[in-house]
Amino acid sequence: MKSYQDRSGDSGIAAYEYGADWIRIRFRRGGTYDYPASIIGAAHVRAMKRLADGGKGLNTYINTHPEVREGCR
Rank of each mutant, 00 (worst) to 15 (best):
M1D: 12
M1I: 06
M1V: 14
M1P: 08
S3M: 13
S3W: 11
S3F: 14
S3G: 06
Y4G: 08
Y4I: 11
Q5H: 09
R7C: 09
R7G: 02
R7E: 12
S8T: 15
G9K: 06
G9D: 13
G9N: 09
D10W: 13
D10E: 11
S11E: 13
S11A: 13
G12W: 06
G12K: 11
G12I: 06
I13P: 05
I13G: 00
I13Y: 08
A14L: 15
A14W: 10
A15K: 06
A15G: 08
Y16D: 08
E17M: 12
Y18R: 04
G19N: 01
G19T: 01
A20Y: 02
A20N: 01
A20C: 00
D21G: 02
D21W: 00
W22Q: 07
W22T: 00
I23H: 00
R24P: 00
I25H: 02
I25P: 04
R26A: 15
R26F: 05
F27T: 09
F27N: 15
R28F: 09
R28K: 15
R29P: 01
R29A: 15
G30L: 14
G30W: 14
G31K: 15
G31M: 15
G31E: 14
T32V: 12
T32L: 07
T32W: 09
T32E: 14
T32Y: 10
T32K: 08
Y35M: 03
P36T: 09
P36N: 10
S38P: 05
S38Q: 09
S38A: 12
I39D: 05
I40F: 06
I40M: 09
G41K: 04
A43T: 11
A43I: 06
A43G: 03
V45F: 00
V45I: 08
V45M: 04
R46G: 01
R46H: 08
M48P: 04
K49T: 07
L51M: 03
L51H: 05
A52F: 04
A52H: 00
D53N: 13
D53K: 09
G54R: 13
K56C: 10
K56W: 14
K56M: 07
K56L: 15
K56A: 12
L58N: 05
N59K: 12
N59I: 03
N59M: 11
T60Y: 12
T60R: 15
T60K: 13
Y61P: 02
Y61S: 02
I62N: 07
N63G: 15
T64I: 09
T64A: 03
T64H: 13
H65M: 03
P66F: 05
P66Q: 13
E67C: 06
E67I: 03
V68H: 04
V68G: 00
V68T: 04
V68K: 01
V68C: 03
R69M: 09
R69F: 06
E70V: 07
G71M: 07
C72A: 14
